[in-house]
Amino acid sequence: MATEALSYIGNIGELSGILASQSTVNNPAENLLDILQREYIRKVGDWPSAQRIDQEQHREWLGRLTVNRETQWNYLVSQSTANKKRIDYVNSWENVENIILQIRFSQLIRYGERISNRLSDLRRAVREEDGEDAEISADSLRGFISFLKMYPNIRYPDIALTPDGNIYARWKGDRGALFSVEFLPDSKVGYVVFSPLLNRAGELSRHSGIDSVENAFVRMNAAFAISEWVLE
């Protein structure tokens, strides 16, 4: 299931790095798939039997190609490109539904049921407004779920969707304080912070930028003590 593995590995650059580190390999055909399989298991945790069958098919094709890593690589990339639409489609449909369910039942997410209900409402609305193909971005939703799990004592936010289908979440505090986050693909966030100035009543310090899901809150909290209005 090389193509599926490619989609999980995320990008060609990452896989190229992995391959580059395997310079001592004697059998490139076998090794390329072994590497993919190992990375797939590392990321997904399983290598289902249906994929093993598919893997055999790919192994056979790779065996027929001259044992040349560049040719193999081109083959895998072409397979990946050909299947990208299908994979995106499966990702967006199956994963969005599953991720919303994960949020509902996760013990690590505060207000899981309420957030899950809200996301289901938004999903229905965006299809009503923009057509049946419109969908919440699965990547954005994954970022959101990671963020929620990182801060189990987080307050319930306002949640909406950007025109790109990304999750937008906002926490407001007193005196105009605000922390809003748009969950972007690739585990990034776009954030805005409005923080009251200590010695100037009614004035705010305003900042925006892009950071990783893991670091945005920590960095903004260190600078503006946003936990005062974001956490309970």
């Binding site: 609305a125 407004e129 306002d158 950007t162 906002r170």
Partner: peptide
């Protein structure tokens, strides 16, 4: 659109993107 509104019906910035 509804997907850009808060649950209380107020407008969120997503409406101005």
């Amino acid at each position: 659109g509804y997907s850009t509104l808060a649950e209380d019906g107020s407008v969120l910035p997503a409406a101005f993107r």
